[in-house]
């Protein structure tokens, strides 16, 4: 039975990892077709020479960095507030945003922006994408930071207050350093969900805010394209490296 389980586990791991490995392998294929014709970097060169593609990657980076900075700040403060004073409403809305299907979050935000535009003369664009990304990644940040706060001893903060620190000082010099690894991990998480999102982004994006996932989606819709294999491999490697870094930070 034990050997059967091990074989089974290998099969499941193959199911999980082989598709991406095969995709990566074929991104180095010289041929345009699914037959192996020899090693080549031509699809990587083609991808990096594509101006629209590079522009959408830059857009994605700008959006992900701004959204991460905002969401990490708001999410950390929300987690801290929940730890100090539990609020069913706040906790409920956090969990709700984690379980709400993406498409529903997307259309809600779109409806919200259209409603707000009646008062503000804005259009859909980079800023609405950033705001939308903040809205859906806050919950992820808060959950990661809350997990770390559960192991934090409130007596430490009380001790700082007894020793003459004001509340802000105690937060900044005692609580914040303790939370730091969780905050860094949460920021990485927010960054990866932001840079990867297609469903919500495509609904709230304007004409000037094409992101990398949107470009990838448009290409995938048109069918398989060897350049897309190269792009996918690069994205997977960059995201994978970031996740490994985040894991390292969280376990340290």
């Amino acid at each position: 039975m034990k050997r059967g389980l091990a074989l089974y586990a290998i099969a499941v791991y193959a199911f999980l990892h082989l598709p991406l490995l095969i995709l990566a392998l074929f991104s180095f294929n010289a041929s345009k077709f699914t037959l192996w014709e020899g090693f080549s970097l031509r699809w990587y060169r083609a991808a990096l020479a594509d101006a629209d593609l590079v522009q959408s990657a830059i857009n994605s980076l700008i959006i992900a960095i701004s959204a991460t900075a905002l969401a990490t700040t708001i999410g950390t403060l929300a987690a801290y507030a929940l730890w100090k004073r539990s609020s069913t409403w706040l906790a409920g809305s956090l969990y709700l945003s984690l379980v709400t299907p993406e498409i529903v979050t997307g259309v809600s935000l779109l409806a919200f922006f259209q409603w707000a535009f009646r008062f503000l003369h804005w259009k859909l664009g980079m800023h609405t994408v950033i705001l939308a990304h903040v809205a859906f990644s806050v919950a992820y940040v808060a959950v990661v930071v809350m997990a770390r706060l559960r192991t934090f001893d409130p007596a430490l903060e009380e001790a700082a207050l007894d020793l003459g620190a004001d509340e802000f000082g105690a937060f900044r010099r005692v609580t914040l350093p303790y939370l730091w690894p969780a905050i860094a991990a949460a920021a990485m998480l927010a960054f990866t969900v932001s840079i990867d999102d297609y469903v919500i982004t495509s609904l709230v994006a304007g004409i000037d805010s094409q992101t990398l996932p949107m470009t990838i989606y448009a290409m995938a819709r048109r069918g398989v394209n060897p350049m897309l294999n190269a792009i996918s491999t690069m994205v997977v490697i960059v995201l994978g490296a970031m996740v490994l870094m985040a894991e390292r930070l969280r376990s340290s």
């Binding site: 598709p19 995709l23 990867d196 398989v224 997977v236």
Partner: peptide
């Protein structure tokens, strides 16, 4: 198990299309 989950969802679907 978790690692592929953190790589792009869109790309994982595309891998199956491939």
């Amino acid at each position: 198990v978790i690692l592929p989950f953190w790589t792009s969802f869109l790309i994982r679907i595309y891998a199956w299309m491939f």
